[in-house]
Nucleic acid binder design. Structure first.
Lengths: 119, 119
DNA sequence: TCAATGAATAGATAGTGATCGATATTAGAG
DNA sequence: CTCTAATATCGATCACTATCTATTCATTGA
């Protein structure tokens, strides 16, 4: 049996939606699924985090790598990474003492299609 | 002389940026340009507003048309439309007593490319 | 000129979120 | 079994934002 809708991350529920710009407008329920994903993206620190993770060697980075790129405390960076992970935009892998994050590129691609895919 | 960067709407400043996922990560300045655009999008009411405007006859709609689709006060809808207009995602045209909004589709397309365009 | 209608502004409030310092947790080294 | 280093969690604070009601502004029609 597949996961119930409630257990899916926002990113996973987005692929199904027809684009923002189409002949049939978004339902309230659809809009409420999509908004959290965009909210997670809509922060300059988190945008840079995603970008830095992707550009990092091996397409993954640990918190310490990322922390150095900001003038922010370690808990703040950790918090932002958590937000991105919870909506399904970042994957998380613990190896030893380090936690490595990587970008879920297909989630971003789905989101991009949703935003710009209607034309 | 072209508009100074400060006068450009967020949507206008986004087209220039390389995608979120590329070998060179986003600069702080770039991230701070993009975030307001995403922030404007990151609300279920505003997502539906964009969608409704686009799906409406003639690809434009007045406030009264949109107001009916929500259980929210007219000033609240007006506020959300203003937010979308200010970042450059909606165009605004006053005709008589009515104000018609329409979607700036190329702004959404640029944003979509920025989010998903790196692969 | 006045009344009516559509839309925007103002001001208030309640909820959310970004950030910090302090603390807890986890895993490897010695 | 400690000590240390890497992350995560907690609790507090300050700023921002979604929403409302009341009001103002603008345009049309009588």
């Amino acid at each position: 049996m597949s996961k119930s809708v409630e257990r899916l991350s926002p990113a996973e529920t987005v692929a199904c939606c027809s684009p923002l710009m189409s002949s049939t407008p978004l339902s309230t329920a659809q809009a409420e699924r999509i908004a959290p994903l965009l909210k997670a993206l809509a922060d300059p620190v988190r945008l840079r985090l995603l970008s830095l993770v992707y550009a990092h060697e091996g397409r993954e980075a640990c918190v310490c790598d990322l922390h150095d790129a900001f003038d922010l405390s370690q808990p703040t960076i950790s918090h932002h990474l958590k937000v991105l992970h919870e909506v399904g935009l970042l994957d998380r892998a613990k190896r030893g003492t380090w936690v490595y994050y990587s970008v879920r590129t297909e989630a971003l691609a789905d989101l991009a299609h949703l935003i710009g895919g209607g034309r």
